[in-house]
Amino acid sequence: MRITVDPDRCVGAGQCALNAPALFDQDDDGLVTLLTEPGADQYDKARLAGALCPSGAITVHEG
């Protein structure tokens, strides 16, 4: 699994930082930033963050 984030699309809802804080944070502008690629035990959290993002700023590439 691989994650890409697009701060240009981010609307700062903070769902990723709230629900998957080991993977995502908000930078000084409050926009999404990827902390680390997910380990196998974090795939569910990564998928959750991708599904919750209201603006499509997080893409989870499976496989």
Binding site: G12, G14, A17, P21, Q26, G30
Partner: peptide, 13 residues
């Protein structure tokens, strides 16, 4: 407008 306000409402803030 939204971008200017986002930093005020981050999880950390």
């Amino acid at each position: 407008f939204r971008k200017a306000l986002i930093p005020e409402f981050t999880v950390r803030r």
